[in-house]
């Protein structure tokens, strides 16, 4: 809505085409953080405050990025990390949705799970890492389970809230129109709770991403962006390290913009259940 409004406002103002102003605004908003961070980075790198080996210029990082990509090393790290992310987060999404929905639907499930969630969720994910490594040993299993465990809470909490906040009047209308329990759930409660569920998944994914990069440094997995960054530090390969950071940022941005925002635009935004996000 906000986007349309500003677009039409520009149209009324005259000279520019109806959507040109809005498009420029979008482009500016999207590029300015990169420009600002990049500029500061370049100034510091060229100032000689740090040895160039430890604070490489953007040119060095770009070269390293290209070399590592062409050699296939960076894609290999990235793919391993993505697979771990999908496995862990996928598990979290499934388990989190089931627990969250049952908490929202049944008083007993709420009594059982809410206290558990309340004490386990606030503990930082990294604090669980040593335990998981001891229990499941270093390697994939620990990494995936930890990602799943840590990112599950946001999904549970938001799904529960969403199911609870489905409007009473929707339930009544559906009841009056003959909806049975099963279709009340699939046709009313799930779509009604969707804005919250999507928020939960989005927050859960951010959690998963954060803990995964950290756990890759600790869990001694052979490939992965976290491992790349950690390993590069040992050899003072700061440019390779930064290339890894760039990939992490790109993947995170891509998931947010091309997965979550698309899903939201197609569902809850189109339905007017939440306003459109800023570009």
């Amino acid at each position: 809505m906000a986007v349309q409004d500003s677009a039409s406002a520009v149209g009324v103002a005259g000279a520019t085409g109806p959507s040109a102003g809005a498009r420029w605004r979008t482009i500016t908003l999207n590029t300015y953080p990169f420009v600002v961070v990049g500029a500061i980075w370049e100034v510091v790198a060229h100032s000689g405050m740090f040895p160039r080996k430890l604070f490489p210029t953007l040119e060095d990082i770009a070269r390293s990025f290209i070399d590592l990509t062409v050699s296939g090393i960076l894609p290999h790290h990235a793919i391993d990390t993505l697979l771990r992310l999908l496995a862990g987060f996928g598990l979290a999404a499934i388990v989190g949705l089931i627990i969250g929905v049952s908490m929202g639907r049944s008083r007993r499930a709420e009594d059982i799970f809410l206290p558990l969630v309340s004490i386990l969720a606030p503990i930082p994910g990294l604090a669980y890492t040593p335990l998981f490594l001891l229990w499941f040993g270093p390697g994939e299993v620990s990494a995936v389970l930890l990602v799943a465990f840590v990112s599950m809470f946001a999904v549970i909490y938001n799904t529960w809230t969403g199911v609870k906040s489905v409007k009473e009047i929707w339930l009544r209308s559906a009841q009056a129109m003959g909806a049975d329990d099963r279709r009340m759930f699939s046709h009313v409660i799930l779509p009604g709770a969707l804005p919250y569920i999507l928020t939960g998944l989005r927050l859960g994914l951010a959690q998963a991403w954060r803990i995964l990069v950290a756990v890759e440094m600790l869990a001694a997995v052979p490939w992965g962006l976290g491992w790349l960054i950690f390993g590069a530090r040992e050899f003072l390969n700061t440019d390779a390290m930064m290339a890894g950071v760039v990939v992490i940022a790109l993947i995170g941005l891509g998931l947010e913009k091309y997965v979550f925002q698309k899903i939201e635009d197609y569902t809850v935004v189109r339905w007017g259940m939440i306003g459109a996000m800023a570009p």
């Binding site: 009047i169 209308s173 009056a176 009604g192 969707l194």
Partner: peptide, 19 residues
Amino acid sequence: GHGMDRGVVFQDFAQLFPW
């Protein structure tokens, strides 16, 4: 109980399913 021999219209505009 409720049944499909009756149709109900409420005051609240929010009664429609937004999705």
